[in-house]
């Protein structure tokens, strides 16, 4: 028996924020390169008040998604991911608050999917897009691409996070 070597290690973080009746709830699942769960953190519901809604205006949601929920979760996890995978564009600005690349899954029906773009890479079965201000990110992730199986579905762990968030909201686990 042996533990995975450091060369093989590639921890991925899957982040999802959901808007429930109780407020915004976020969850971050850290898995190994095979999708096996290592750690999960989720937040208590965040409910902005009226003043915050008025003063933040259209920037409220990106702020809550990235700076409030995303950053908090990233700081709380003990098993640090080397790449955060998201599929909600509001979360892409999380990159400005943390030190690891944040990649957004590109919808398979995206019309621009086939267009050449240096901010995109193929990982598993999905294409990923990175924050335009961090031009080195695609190259950093590209180096570790080989550790992810080509038939890995990177959108699947986000489904698990969604289900887990519903479970926590249902049971009122974090009040």
């Amino acid at each position: 028996m042996t533990q995975s070597t450091d060369q093989q290690r590639f921890h991925l973080g899957f982040l999802w924020v959901v808007h429930t009746d109780l407020g915004y709830v976020g969850g971050l699942l850290v898995t190994n390169h095979l999708g096996r769960p290592l750690e999960f953190q989720c937040t208590a519901p965040v409910r902005p008040n009226k003043t915050q809604e008025i003063l933040y205006g259209p920037t409220l949601q990106p702020f809550i998604y990235s700076e409030l929920i995303g950053k908090t979760l990233f700081e709380r996890v003990k098993v640090q991911p080397e790449l955060i995978i998201i599929s909600q564009v509001e979360l892409i600005d999380l990159r400005t608050s943390i030190s690891v690349p944040v990649a957004c899954l590109i919808d398979s029906e995206d019309s621009q999917r086939e267009l050449p773009d240096q901010t995109r890479i193929q990982l598993g079965m999905q294409q990923l897009r990175f924050h335009p201000d961090y031009v080195d990110d695609p190259a950093i992730v590209q180096k570790k691409c080989s550790r992810i199986s080509k038939d890995a579905d990177l959108s699947e762990p986000l489904e698990r996070v969604k289900d887990a968030l519903l479970e926590t909201v249902k049971t009122n686990a974090v009040a």
């Binding site: 028996m1 208590a44 996890v77």
Partner: peptide
């Protein structure tokens, strides 16, 4: 400050 709830998964056995 946001409250969070966490769960760490036990390390599984990796076989040769």
């Amino acid at each position: 400050k946001l409250k969070t709830f966490g769960l760490t998964f036990p390390a599984g056995i990796d076989f040769l």
